[in-house]
Design a protein around this nucleic acid. Structure first.
Length: 692
RNA sequence: AGCGCCUUGGAGUAGUUUGGUUAACUCGUUGGGCUCAUAACCCAAAGAUCGCAUGGUUCAAGUCCUGCAGGCGCUACCA
């Protein structure tokens, strides 16, 4: 089986900008983890990723940065490459789609398609911006929607009425790039790939992929069911891979066409650097290769239908993916990741706050495998503090220090195993089995949870066997317990390596293992004697806790807030069919009784950091002296004036975040045209008295 | 509009493919234990009519079917 090869690829991040943690968990990180797992098991794997360099956005960003597009891309390439290295992403090669190898392979695949009769020419109308001196992609044109009159409709679709459009349909179209309305319609010739002609073969292939995840399969099948349409593969740009065909020299390939070919060309470049020019062919033209692709869900059609069409149509011996894993989205509280709005965590920032392993662990734990998941600072803290620090780090710590203090740092020898020892080893076996099985199915949360459960199990073993007590009467037995612990820890380190590689290495060092973790053989994952006699050495604590203070700070700093919807009640689309609930004229006394209104003393009051309409009150409600209430009264009250005042609050209102700060209740006030006035008792009142 | 996904104790989730005794896990809460360890670790308890129809199928439904409500994602010339 040694000639079975593996390819692992992550969707290629676009060259522009630094990526956020959502991009990371959507493709890059899983690809890395899976590749690490395969390597650990001794599989012959090449893991490939790189930047997707071409396209209009890169050109425009370069323009704005005052750089040539080549220089801009090189600069961004370096930035991204470093980010991923810092995150311990272990791609064998991280390349670029603008490299010469990609030119060669893209052009050769195109020529094959051409020879095989899958390329045809068609004339298009396209808007040309005279002032920008360039053709405008649909999304770079905005204008008035002919259907609903929305003034900022994009050339491909009106966001307001969601009608699909052609840029030429827009009224008063203008360029997004320059705002110029000096646009002309030009006839241009473009080359198309005849997807309908290739469809039967693609369909035949897709229908055989029973091992694919259901969502992947159903997306692919939907596209095929609706029938593929020919798709343009050229653009009139200067930045890109030139079309190697007479009469089309001024065209370049459309990015969607050349980007996935990057997987192949980057492997080729890797082979070159490895000093074996033809090595890449052993992977890409070997029918026995197992090829795993990782990407966000939006990319699934490209990897299950269009890119395979290129490969199948060209018929040049390249293999197709064995497994296509599409991830849902990692969402962020308060809205989409956005550089301009300072919302979300970007990779470079993330690493300034905490080590890569913290992020890797939490992101993998909540990996959006089945559904969208939301990043949450508090849960991030929980995961790091409980799972990593308390359970994992502390287990390593208590084991190593115990051996250091009682056994001169030497891992003791075991002569016989008691029942509880055997049970421990048996559980390890089960864990490894579960881990292997779920990993082979390309799942991430499950192997990680198996590992996490086992770590807790080992802590239990430690507590229940009480070596600190046993050692007083039976040093030998205590030694056996610690030996078991140390050996099991070695297995845990191996199992955790794909997820948290640096910490795993550190455990190896603690256990006095000289070789890197990646040199270990999977066959020895369970080994009761591997480190007998090793000298352990405390390496410092593996993890550190995240404090509440940090969480609060970062929640605000990184915009993890719900936009105070009081104000942002934009003319949002009236939610369809929201039946107006019939309100009856009276409520019953029981209804009123549900509302608990009580007095509260304002202890402190400050302006809301994110809003000029909100004040943040800290009140004493008779039960607690640290209740936080956010009120929209900043226009009418100075924070200072409210201190020591008694106000009336709704006690049992469901807490809600306002501008990122959790408001636990509501302050009662009345409003007329002059402004807002707070309700309060006639005389000074302590907090906690219910109104009735 | 179409397609798909989601709705399970205070929070986050598993379980739904292949229906079957007390609905599982982590956090949080309450109580207890331990002291080797980073106030870490271990045990126990409370807490869920599994979105709604008091809908259907079945001896049996969180799991299958139907309808409804709410939330989300994807839908090709974007990269």
């Amino acid at each position: 089986m040694s000639n079975e090869k593996y390819i692992v690829t992550s969707a290629l991040p676009y060259i522009n900008g630094v990526k956020h943690i959502g991009n990371l968990i959507g493709s890059l990180l899983p690809a890395d983890v899976f590749a690490r797992y395969l390597r650990l098991r001794g599989r012959d794997v090449v893991a490939i990723c790189g930047t997707d360099d071409h396209g209009t956005p890169a050109e425009i960003a370069a323009l704005e940065a005052g750089l040539s597009v080549e220089d801009y891309c090189t600069k961004m390439y370096k930035v991204q490459k470093k980010n991923y290295e810092d995150f311990n992403l272990s791609f064998d090669y991280f390349g670029r789609t603008s490299d010469i190898e990609n030119h060669e392979i893209t052009q050769s695949l195109f020529l094959k398609l051409y020879e095989n009769g899958y390329i045809f020419e068609k004339e298009d109308e396209q808007l040309f911006s005279v002032d920008d001196d360039r053709f405008l992609p649909d999304r770079y044109v905005i204008g008035t929607c002919p259907h609903c009159g929305y003034e900022r409709a994009r050339g491909d679709q009106c966001e307001d009425c969601s009608t699909l459009l052609n840029p030429t349909q827009l009224i008063n179209p203008k360029s997004v790039i320059s705002d110029s309305n000096n646009l002309v319609i030009k006839q241009t010739k473009h080359l198309y790939i005849d997807l309908p002609k290739i469809q039967p073969k693609v369909e035949e292939w897709v229908n055989k992929q029973e091992q694919w995840p259901l969502t992947t399969l159903s997306i692919a099948q939907k596209w095929l069911r609706e029938g593929l349409r020919p798709r343009s593969i050229t653009r009139n740009l200067k930045w890109g891979i030139p079309v190697p065909l007479q009469g089309y020299e001024d065209l370049v390939f459309y990015v969607w066409f050349d980007a996935p070919i990057g997987y192949i060309s980057m492997t080729k470049k890797w082979a070159k650097l490895e000093g074996d020019e033809n090595l890449w062919l052993e992977y890409w033209k070997n029918p026995k290769t197992r090829y795993y692709e990782f990407m966000g869900i939006d990319n699934v059609p490209f990897h299950t239908v269009t890119f395979p069409s290129t490969i199948i149509g060209a018929d040049d011996g390249y293999i197709l993916p064995t497994f296509v894993k599409g991830f849902q989205w990692l969402t962020y509280p308060g809205g989409k990741f956005s550089t301009s709005q300072k919302r979300g965590v970007f990779i470079d920032q993330a690493l300034e706050l905490y080590p890569a392993d913290y992020w890797r662990y939490y992101l993998l734990l909540i990996a959006p495998e089945r559904q969208n998941t939301e990043f949450n600072w508090k849960l991030f803290q929980d995961a790091v503090n409980n799972d990593l620090n308390n359970q994992f780090g502390n287990l390593v710590n208590r084991t190593v220090t115990f051996i250091e203090r009682n056994f001169d740092g030497k891992v003791p020898t075991v002569d016989s195993y008691k029942k509880e020892d055997e049970e421990l080893w048996q559980d390890l076996e089960h864990t490894v089995k579960e881990y292997e099985e779920t990993f082979e199915q390309v799942e991430f949360q499950k192997p990680l949870k198996a590992l996490k459960t086992f770590v807790a199990r080992v802590n239990k073993y430690f507590t229940e066997t009480k070596p600190w007590e046993v050692i007083k009467t039976d040093k030998k037995r205590a030694g056996e317990i610690l030996s078991n612990l140390a050996h099991v820890l070695r297995s845990i380190a191996l199992l955790s390596h794909p997820f948290i590689p640096s910490s795993a290495e550190k455990i190896y060092l603690s256990l006095g293992i000289a070789h890197p973790i990646t040199d270990d053989k999977w066959e020895r994952i369970i080994d009761r004697t591997a480190i007998r006699g090793n000298t352990v050495k405390f390496q410092g604590h593996l993890f550190k806790k995240i404090t509440d203070k940090e969480v609060k700070k970062y929640e605000i700093e990184f915009g993890a807030v719900v936009v105070s919807d009081e104000e942002s009640k934009q003319p949002e689309k009236p939610k369809k069919s929201k039946k107006p609930t019939k309100e009856s004229k009276f409520i019953t006394i029981e209804d009123f009784d549900k509302v608990k209104i009580k007095s509260a003393k304002v202890l402190d009051c400050v302006k809301h950091p994110k809003s000029d309409k909100l004040l943040v009150l800290t009140v004493d409600d008779g039960e607690r002296k640290d209740r936080t209430i956010v009120a929209g009264i900043a226009k009418y009250y100075n924070p200072e004036d409210l201190k020591n005042r008694t106000v009336m609050i709704v006690d049992n209102l469901k807490p809600r975040k306002l501008g990122g700060i959790k408001s636990e209740g509501m302050v009662l006030a009345v409003e007329d045209e002059k402004g807002v006035s707070l309700l309060s008792p006639d005389r000074d009142f302590a907090g906690g008295f219910r109104a009735s």
